[in-house]
Computed example of a mutant assay.
Amino acid sequence: MIENSAYLGRYWHMLDDGRMQCDLCPRDCKLHEGQRGACFVRMRQNNQMILTTYGRSSGFCIDPIEKKPLNHFYPGSSVLSFGTAGCNLACKFCQNWDISKSKDMDQLMDQASPNAIASAAESYGCKSVAFTYNDPVIFAEYAMDVADACHARGIKTVAVTAGYMHDQARRDFYAKIDAANVDLKAFTDDFYFKLTGSHLQPVLDTLCYLKHETDVWFEITTLLIPGQNDSNEEITAMCQWIRNELGVDVPLHFSAFHPDYKMADIPATPVTTLIRARDIAIHEGLQFVYTGNVHNQAGDTTFCPNCNTPLIVRDWYQINQYLLTKDGHCPDCGITIAGRFDQHAGNFGRKRIPIAIMEHV
């Protein structure tokens, strides 16, 4: 069962003019009684912050961890994935717009307490639980409660996020998270403002925080949109920033856009664009660069950055070869590969298994 107190949100304060300011993310929504924030799920009610989607999900699935995408976090393992509804960004190119842009709470048909989710993950043999499909920032309190329940059972937690948070919420949230994939949507504030309704700097702040102040394993994804963020100059500048501020061993995924939502008139990203971006990133010194949403074996494979041995050979989400030693070293030259690894890869493969979670009263 879900206690009523669980619906109360943190991260707000009252303004002198009587409005309530949400302090979760840089949108700083200022609410009158009964109003919701831009994310649509954080609401002022009776002078408290209410989480309208606490304990409610748009669905539960068991996925390969590589789908998040995370290539260096227990490869081949399974992850129980779920999201809610709403989002604190307004991306015109959203690939999950039917969930993240939904204002229809009736789409949230599945209900589950944190303990029920952790129990299901354990029952299905999942290594981790992922907060995904829409951004977990907006249901941070629910995600943190689920994380506590998962950790009590030895299950890891994963956040798939745009990284758009204020500092205090960021610190509280990532104290509960074991791994993250952060969308770095572009490397200009103009792109962020015009196409997402947000700003670049808070995302860079999140990435630097993860690298320098936490032990969270994280990887970065950039969705390349033709004519918007795919120039050689922008990709080069982004890769140089990652190299200089985060380090050469942070995995970077270049993903292919497909026409959707409010940008249905933009063509899909050619495979050649992803390969070009990967070549630029490698030229700038990044060690682990991948391509996503396309079939490209070189872009799926983890190579040793020292001797170029193909250590993890993938075909989409299927692992066909796994050569890492049990402590994550290259068997040929002995260097340590950045990430979190078991002695053997998991064998979950490319399956996607929708599940229902039952509450035990």
Rank of each mutant, 00 (worst) to 15 (best):
K30E: 15
G227E: 12
H360K: 09
L24P: 10
A120K: 15
L252W: 12
R243F: 13
R170I: 08
I357G: 06
Q111W: 10
Y164V: 03
Y261W: 10
L323I: 03
A179D: 05
N320M: 06
D183E: 13
A116F: 00
Q45I: 03
D190V: 08
R19G: 04
F341A: 02
H32P: 02
G349S: 08
Y322D: 09
Q35T: 10
K68Q: 13
M358V: 14
G346D: 04
S77P: 02
I275G: 07
K30H: 01
G18V: 00
R10K: 15
E245L: 07
T206S: 07
S119L: 07
F348Q: 11
R44W: 02
K92T: 15
G18I: 11
H253R: 00
A147M: 12
A298R: 13
Q240D: 12
V361F: 10
D183P: 09
M105Y: 14
M144W: 05
R352Y: 14
G299S: 06
F348H: 06
I235V: 15
F257S: 05
D135E: 01
L311W: 03
V158Q: 00
R171E: 15
C239R: 06
M238D: 00
R44H: 05
R276T: 12
C239M: 04
T236L: 07
D332F: 01
G334R: 05
G163E: 04
G339I: 00
D205F: 05
Q111L: 08
S128H: 12
Q35A: 14
A298Y: 05
T236G: 09
A147V: 04
D342N: 14
I312S: 10
H360G: 08
L24K: 02
R44M: 10
A179T: 10
C22F: 06
A6Q: 07
C22D: 03
D28M: 07
T301I: 07
D17Y: 06
L224I: 07
N46D: 15
V271I: 14
F60K: 00
D189V: 02
A179P: 01
I275Y: 02
R243Y: 12
D63W: 03
F73E: 02
H329Y: 10
F60T: 03
D106L: 09
S77E: 14
R243M: 15
I266D: 00
I117Y: 03
T221E: 05
V248E: 15
D17I: 12
N181V: 07
C307I: 09
E284C: 12
H151F: 02
R56E: 07
P64R: 04
D167S: 15
I312L: 09
M105I: 13
M144D: 06
P270D: 13
E233M: 04
G339F: 00
C94P: 02
F60Q: 09
F60C: 02
R243T: 04
Q35P: 04
H166S: 14
